[in-house]
Design a protein around this nucleic acid. Structure first.
Lengths: 253, 253
DNA sequence: CGCAAGATTGACGGAGTTCAAGCCGAGTGG
DNA sequence: CCACTCGGCTTGAACTCCGTCAATCTTGCG
């Protein structure tokens, strides 16, 4: 759960952006990524008024599965994991959230998953009830949210394909590519890609064990597909090979 | 891909309901399950006007992954599987749809999955463009759709937990319970539950092989948890045991 | 009846898990 | 400044659940 020191620059930038948003939605640098971006800037006050920013320490819980779903959240800076547990403790991480991402969806009034910060994180918290009132005045917000959730559903379907049918190497390749692409969207470094989560989190996300994740990292490193300057930094050395792997093209090696 | 004969009664009922809807949304018996249910019955014409019913034979494609996403669909009767393929042919089914269910979501203008009928099926097809026009006049439709998609996302997360962390027996138990609950919602028989899909489809849905699905059915049958009057009918004999299994409570046996 | 497709069963092998030992690196305290 | 410690990561060896391959059975249908 510790945060890497060596490669800290991009994070400090993010923290800067977050602090700005905490004070003033109009200055929010990631608004275009969140559903708030659908709102005419002149009406931003309506969100601002119902919104509270909260700072979360690494390892702290944002959401507990089963709690009453009173609020929804936007990530302003940092990152968060969403996960579900089986009774005997087996864990499946259903997603990692980055700045601009949304969470807090609930269908029956309670949260269907838990959420925990991977590093110091800022979130914008909005009471569901009040947000719904803003939605009814501004249907464009609801439309944007629909687009966001639809996209999440599509990502979830990709993940089902990964969990149901891909080998360990294919899962890791797909994961690394996806992380890289997400960073690109945020204008963060997308090739030597920084992973804020532990090996255990990666394992729980990919439906593997820590040991298999570790072994697979080693295997990809040894065949020259990736390089590992540090435990949290991965250089995607052979993109073609990674893509072929991730798409289940040809698993030779 | 053949449809079972012996237990045909419930299906014929459904087909009846479907034919009614094909002609007249006001008579649609499953409207309350679909997003159309959010519309004031007086305004149903607006949907009716842009809607076309189509009959699909068992095994025929409704959607091909990658095609331009020009329309969205409601299932009126029958059932459909949604699936994604890897380049080498490995298949993951991401969902089975029943009457009232919705499909056709696309984020980038093309469908992200394929859809194929499991049995003779009626669908209500609506051009996306025209539907959006109706949506802008009736935001309550969009709100309902948001609720539906949110629910689907939550189901998808359950499925990730299943695919990533559950054993074969746990997967099958969870699958049978889910099917039973879905039937309940439709007022179909929910205990001897009818499965319109083949063993191969169940395998592709649960991230297993046909052989493992078959062996696991046999195992559950031999331990008395289920009974198998026919290949497509499953009687859930020991619900507690099934629930414990499905939730990963205690996998003994 | 006999075929074809789907389902079941058996034998075997392998990818990934489990259990256990060792390693590495950051933080701590003497 | 270095030894110590502790958590996370890596590596190794044995095992296991599930996949693969192949044979047999069942069922619906011409």
């Amino acid at each position: 759960m510790t945060t890497a020191r060596p490669d800290r620059k991009p994070h400090d930038n993010r923290a800067g952006a977050a602090r700005a948003q905490a004070k003033d939605c109009r200055r929010c640098e990631i608004r275009h990524l969140a559903f708030c971006g659908a709102l005419d800037p002149r009406n931003l006050d309506e969100i601002q008024e119902i919104m509270q920013t909260r700072h979360i320490n690494a390892g702290d819980h944002v959401i507990n599965e089963g709690d009453e779903a009173a609020a929804v959240f936007n990530i302003a800076s940092g990152s968060i994991k969403l996960y579900k547990l089986l009774q005997d403790g087996r864990c499946q991480i259903t997603g990692f959230l980055q700045p601009g991402d949304f969470c807090g969806i609930a269908t029956d009034g309670t949260y269907a998953y838990s959420a925990e910060a991977l590093e110091p994180t800022e979130i914008c918290s909005m009471p569901r009830k009040k947000l719904e009132a803003v939605f009814s005045r501004h249907p464009e917000l609801e439309r944007r949210l629909l687009a966001i959730i639809s996209h999440e559903l599509s990502v979830a379907q990709d993940q089902m394909l990964l969990l149901g049918r891909k080998t360990a190497a294919e899962r890791l390749a797909a994961f690394l590519l996806r992380q890289s692409e997400r960073n690109e969207r945020l204008n963060w470094p997308s090739n030597p890609v920084h992973l804020p989560m532990s090996r255990a989190d990666i394992a729980d996300y990919l439906g593997l064990t820590i040991e298999t994740v570790s072994r697979t990292f080693t295997k990809l490193k040894e065949e020259g597909t990736i390089r590992l300057p540090s435990k949290t930094v991965v250089e995607l050395a052979h993109m073609d090979r990674l893509r072929t792997l991730a798409e289940g093209g040809d698993a030779t090696h």
